[in-house]
Design a binder for these strands. Structure first.
Lengths: 186, 186
DNA sequence: TGCATGTCTTGCAGAGTCTGCAAACTTTGC
DNA sequence: GCAAAGTTTGCAGACTCTGCAAGACATGCA
């Protein structure tokens, strides 16, 4: 899918040069030498072209990852491992070339954050909560622990990703630090 | 804004009766006896009519709340207090009548979760992180603690809200439980 | 080469969301 | 009763997105 990346590159540059408003599907398509119809063959919605797509994983993979952890491992350590897998797949790497530009675009238009598709994250969280609850033999409707653990793990991921982006430190290390803080207690 | 609530009520019922696809702005407006143009006077976007609007607070209020906490209080306790204020304002209460219906709609169309406006939350989180960092005299670009604390606090809010919705327990109590877990360590 | 197959791209028509503007209508206070 | 202020509406138009069917292109094989 090199073309997908190419279209995205054109789109980001256009938005940066002419303003986000000017970057309509028509304009992007013209600049990328494709028809507007084709644009939608590559991106299900316009917002997706400016999305960082942090989710290169599928819920199934992630759940499988969790299930593969030893049964007697502490749940928080299992989540640490799972989140690390997500972090690896969570690809700023996939943007290499455009990453700087996209970052600038986000700086100018913070509202783009809000347009990122988050559906999948919610679904994954729900599935993880269910699985953690099964592992610990608790009812997630009664016990807060599974829900809190999973949500806090995502909070750690988010925090570590931010820090990694800003300060250029290695994501896995930061994730470990964040998890250590969570385990020790805030 | 009783009319706003009335429009929302009509919209939810329509989506439940005829399906989400059938609940176009035109259809909703017709059912609510207003013009489509008027619909947009009450809701900036169609998605908003099906949004639970968990954010009845403004970032300014929340920051003021944090600043009002004693300077020598542990940051995590300050956040606990702040999140409690958000929880109070976070109005399922505002939906009283339609709440059951909306819940059913969300059950049938989980994708609606993804359409909720989350812009404001991100902005609030960023502001809170900055303020916590200032209070603790740390640089949020280096130290993970402020970011993790704030994100984890929102995780606690989310978890407690979910649990409260499912099990009908009091939100403030659940929030306290969640915070206790975070403080003690996962 | 010629044909068959499958994939990628495109045009078109149409539904739906959302905005700006100005006119019409209501409400309110005096 | 009237003026000011606020609300509602129609209209025109830009934009996103979808389904469908036709066309272009590539691939492999006889």
């Amino acid at each position: 899918m090199a073309k997908r990346a190419a279209i995205r590159g054109v789109a980001i540059r256009l938005a940066l040069d002419e303003g986000l408003d000017a970057a309509t599907v028509d304009a992007i398509s013209a600049a990328a030498d494709i028809s507007p119809r084709t644009f939608f063959n590559y991106f299900p919605s316009k917002d997706d072209v400016f999305s960082i797509e942090p989710h290169q994983w599928s819920t199934e993979e992630i759940i499988a990852e969790l299930k593969a952890r030893p049964a007697d491992e502490a749940p928080v350590e299992s989540m640490r491992a799972v989140v690390k897998v997500m972090a690896e797949a969570a690809g700023f790497a996939n943007f290499a070339e455009e990453w700087e530009l996209l970052q600038e675009l986000y700086r100018r238009h913070p509202e783009l954050f809000g347009k990122m598709r988050v559906d999948k994250v919610d679904i994954t969280i729900a599935a993880l909560v269910k699985e953690i609850a099964a592992r610990t033999g608790t009812d997630p409707a009664i016990d807060l622990y599974p829900g809190l653990l999973v949500n806090a793990a995502f909070a750690a991921l988010q925090t570590a990703e931010n820090a990694s982006r800003i300060s250029d430190r290695a994501l896995p290390d930061l994730l470990d630090n964040a998890f250590d803080l969570l385990i020790r207690g805030l």
